[in-house]
Design a protein around this nucleic acid. Sequence first.
DNA 1: GCCAACGTTGGC
DNA 2: GCCAACGTTGGC
Length: 216
Amino acid sequence: MAARKGSKSAVAKAAAKKVARNPVKTAGRKGASTARNAPPRSAPYEQGKWAAAFRPRAAGERRYWLVKSEPEAFSFDDLLAAKDRTTCWDGVRNTAARNFLRDGMKRGDQVFFYHSMAEPSGVVGVCEVVREGYPDHTAFDKAHQYHDAGTVPETPTWFMVDVRAVRALPRLVPLAEIKAEKALAQMALVRVGRLSVVPVTPEEWERVLAMSARTP
DNA sequence: GCCAACGTTGGC
DNA sequence: GCCAACGTTGGC
């Protein structure tokens, strides 16, 4: 079973709209999607806002990330229950997030699993990158919820990684607590709320782990 | 290249 | 349901 990430209802809604109300858009999207393919896989990101996430690594350096999923669509428990506790992270349709998936995340990187649109929203578990960026096949599937008419397998626009669950946190760390924590004020999660894949610094990683290990 | 209209994310 | 933030689109 393919896991469905991102915002299920919103994506479904968007897909429905795309098909129902604007068939002309399909023609227009081809060109747009070529543009969306840039920058290429080996592009230098030094100028970008997220430069640190793409900088060359020291030997053996491990990086940290956070991915969001609506638990109603795919929860951390769903990941624990999945075959090999592993899933492909499909359905991401945002270029910044795509760049992290395609170029930033490397095997062995540690990833927070975050529940969005939840009661409460927060970090629930740890997983690990077990397969690096490869094309998100759901984009090519006409019947799929995440279909993107503007992209073809020869020049894929959307990418995903595979992640495997490592462990659930001792307790969920709610977004409200993260926001209240001075040391976490710079977290990408807090600063750029709508991104569904974001980098986490080693310091932020440790802090969130520490918060999960104690009662507030 | 500018920018207005529009769409999406996701908290509240 | 509302709305802030911001990405995308497309006209010019």
